[in-house]
Design a protein around this nucleic acid. Structure first.
Lengths: 204, 204
DNA sequence: CTAAATAAGAAACTATTAGTATCTTAATTC
DNA sequence: GAATTAAGATACTAATAGTTTCTTATTTAG
């Protein structure tokens, strides 16, 4: 006998898949429960029972994808570079790859809604992401220190997060993220910053 | 005799003012023609005759404000610093001030809509802004060069725009833009980057 | 100064759609 | 096998975006 009705986790997965597909094709601003229900071959009421708004559904679907795919966590990257530069390239390359997945879901559109609602889930996702990125960068800097390559590893968190912020900004504003830009960032900004000897302010 | 009906530019200004006020208080996502009409003490149809969507109205209102107030253009700033560091502080401080005005209008919410529509007006606004910022930074670097302070003025545009991008990212993600962060950016990133002697890649 | 043209403003109307409620029945549990 | 739970279908309600029509104030032209 064939199943006529899905339920529970099974059904939920179908809804998440439909949600992500619509996010990709039409974007968050055109995401509504009726379309998701149609695509997932279920009913509007089923979705209303589970989520309050298309926003919370979208967040849930994305979180689910992150959870199941564990998408390119930068802190689980095994670094094989023989220099700070190589390690940084590896790290930020991985970061870009994992970000591309989000670009597909047009999360930039979600951001507006999130800031409006002072959404805590999004804030949490961001700060979790930041923690992972910080960790990864610290690892890179430690390796460089051991190699005897650099002077500074005590940079403030804001500055350590700068490369990730900058790349995310490019993503949000739909500016292409190329390998070349990555090299510019590393050679012209990050390496000088991490190598810089003193933090004396030449205020004259 | 008192005017009973405003028209033309007069009326348009009233609509712009109402639009900006609603952007401030409720944000773009809650901007609709009916509310604007009410607040501007005019009629919905008057607005529909002029603009297609709340989005285009919002853009028009913001553009109008930029035009009339010429809001803190960084390229018209007269620099008085006696060092690169001081000039950078002055420039980026001014930048932050002018950005705050936009923050009030919650343009982050607009961004989602803009990226969805591949909006050219926004793209144009951004690239105009970039040109102004580049210009201003070049001026700062030139002054430093004349003082004999720095080595590099031939950085690629992407890198010259980095401080502005970073600050904008903070704005969009509602992270506080403090004077302290500005100093970190300048001391730990920009000065090292602009001073860095060689661009040899230490790939071993 | 008057007639014609233009555009503001009011109001009613239509269509869409978000959200809710109700009911039937499949699937699960006890 | 009865009772419970939840899926899925359908219909309903309320809100509102957008349109249309009409009246009249204001401007322009003769």
């Amino acid at each position: 006998m064939v199943q006529k009705r899905r339920r529970g986790a099974d059904l939920e997965q179908a809804i998440y898949q439909a949600t992500l597909q619509i996010l990709k094709s039409k974007g968050f601003l055109n995401l509504n429960f009726a379309d998701v229900a149609d695509l997932a071959k279920t009913s509007k009421s089923v979705i209303y029972r589970r989520w309050q708004t298309p926003f919370s559904l979208a967040i849930a679907a994305i979180q689910d994808k992150i959870k199941t795919e564990n998408h390119g966590r930068t802190d689980e990257l095994t670094l094989t570079g023989h220099s700070l530069r190589e390690d940084l390239l590896q790290l930020l390359h991985r970061f870009i790859i994992s970000m591309q997945a989000f670009r597909d879901f047009r999360i930039a559109e979600l951001l507006g809604e999130a800031t409006q609602k002072q959404n805590t889930t999004i804030q949490q996702l961001i700060s979790e992401g930041n923690a992972i990125d910080l960790n990864a960068l610290d690892h890179v800097l430690e390796r460089a220190k051991k190699r005897g390559e650099i002077i500074k590893t005590d940079l403030p968190e804001e500055i350590k997060l700068l490369p990730f912020d900058w790349l995310r900004f490019h993503l949000f504003t739909n500016q292409p993220l190329t390998e070349h830009k990555l090299e510019l960032l590393i050679d012209d900004v990050l390496l000088p910053s991490y190598h810089y000897e003193s933090r004396i302010n030449p205020t004259q």
